[in-house]
């Protein structure tokens, strides 16, 4: 307990150093583009595949579970849309990113720590935390909400695909359901969640990497801790944001 509080303090102190003005704007922009590619663009394939499949599964599960003839078939589309936008495309996608991006960041920064590359920067007078971490937090927090949108659209398309393959309902019933009681606010809510989750993932895994010690084993350990801690933080933040925004 005492150790967790100390770590929390250390995390906030690190964030204070991260959020300072970069030494050189040009260098920051360069890193920002590199990290956008590494953290955001490179996540597109896995998120795309998972979204299509989950969209399809949600549609057939809902369709097979609606047995009562009193419930209109278009509810399948409605349910698929709501589960995708409310939880899957933000929270589940963020948990997947916590594994993929989180371990990537913490092992990258961690191996720079144990091979003294961070010392080399600090020794030159460079704010290494700012140089290494700020572009990662910034690019993921800014662009990942677009990943959420992409995941949403692909999930709906996955649903449409399985409908045309199996014919559990008709496409026009599906599309009627998708438009039923549509609230733009939910998309906004989900994008906000994704931005917060991305901040959590990038900052927490950077923290664990930055303070890695104990050789390559230590880097592995810090990477595991980063994933666990970001996942827990995502679930907590999900509760808080939902209470605040949907209440």
């Amino acid at each position: 307990m005492k150790k967790s509080l100390e770590q929390l303090g250390q995390y906030f102190l690190l964030m204070k150093i991260v959020f300072t003005r970069p030494d050189k704007g040009r260098i920051f922009r360069k890193q920002f583009f590199i990290d956008t590619e590494k953290l955001v663009l490179n996540s597109i394939p896995i998120i795309a595949v998972i979204s299509v499949f989950i969209g399809a599964v949600i549609v057939i599960q809902t369709a097979y579970n609606i047995e009562s003839p009193l419930i209109p078939k278009m509810y399948v589309g409605y349910m698929a849309r709501e589960s995708l936008v409310l939880e899957f495309c933000s929270t589940m996608v963020a948990l997947i990113l916590a594994g993929k991006v989180g371990s990537n960041i913490s092992s990258e920064i961690g191996s720079m720590r144990i091979s003294e590359q961070i010392d080399a920067m600090e020794m030159m007078g460079i704010n290494s935390a700012n140089y290494l971490i700020l572009p990662k937090i910034a690019s993921a927090t800014i662009f990942n909400p677009l990943l959420m949108l992409m995941s949403f659209i692909l999930g709906l398309l996955g649903g449409a695909m399985i409908i045309s393959l199996t014919g559990v309902i008709t496409l026009s019933q599906y599309s009627e359901g998708l438009q039923y009681a549509f609230r733009m606010y939910y998309i906004f809510y989900s994008m906000i969640k994704m931005a917060v989750f991305s901040f959590i993932i990038t900052s927490i895994s950077s923290y664990y990497g930055y303070y890695a010690d104990g050789g390559s084993l230590g880097v592995g350990r810090s990477s595991t801790k980063a994933i666990v801690a970001s996942s827990v933080a995502i679930l907590l933040a999900n509760l808080v944001i939902t209470q605040l925004m949907l209440n």
Binding site: Q117, D119, G125
Partner: peptide, 19 residues
């Protein structure tokens, strides 16, 4: 310290080149 550090060079044990 930055001003002094610009005048310091350091070679680390494992070279510490940026990989």
């Amino acid at each position: 310290k930055k001003n002094i550090r610009k005048e310091i060079g350091m070679l680390f044990q494992g070279s510490a080149l940026f990989d």
